[in-house]
């Protein structure tokens, strides 16, 4: 049992850093999606990748790196806030745009008609 614990303690920082890195890369991917997608509503989907997967992976990674339980609790609070406020602000944005009369692009979009808007 102690061997397992020793292995875990040696492995934990590496796993944590790797998860933080994966989360940061997902944030870059989400940003690339926000830059590429053609209209506001589709950009909203790309931004939600950052809000959910990137944040979760980075915070789990940081929790594995954390030196004490207090840090883990704080990270959990950050995660909870992000998950409670993220969909609310996304919905508020989509609802405001829809109420203001912004029409979404519908139908299959290729590279030709994308990026021009």
């Amino acid at each position: 049992m102690t061997e397992v614990m020793e292995f875990w303690n040696a492995f934990r920082p590496a796993l944590g850093s790797a998860l933080v890195l994966v989360g940061a890369v997902l944030a870059v991917i989400g940003t690339v999606g926000v830059l590429r997608f053609p209209d506001f509503y589709t950009r909203l989907h790309a931004a939600s990748v950052t809000d959910t997967a990137a944040a979760t992976l980075a915070i789990v990674g940081m929790a594995l790196l954390a030196p004490s339980l207090a840090i883990v609790v704080k990270l959990a609070v950050v995660w909870l806030f992000l998950f409670l406020t993220g969909p609310t602000s996304s919905h508020a944005l989509a609802n405001a745009a829809h109420t203001a009369g912004l029409q979404p692009m519908i139908g299959r979009l290729g590279e030709d008609d994308g990026g021009s808007q």
Binding site: L26, I29, F37, A46, G110, E111
Partner: peptide, 15 residues
């Protein structure tokens, strides 16, 4: 969504 972001040609079908 990640696959849609990274595909070299844009291929989405919003509705």
């Amino acid at each position: 969504v990640i696959k849609a972001c990274l595909r070299s040609t844009l291929d989405i079908n919003p509705a």
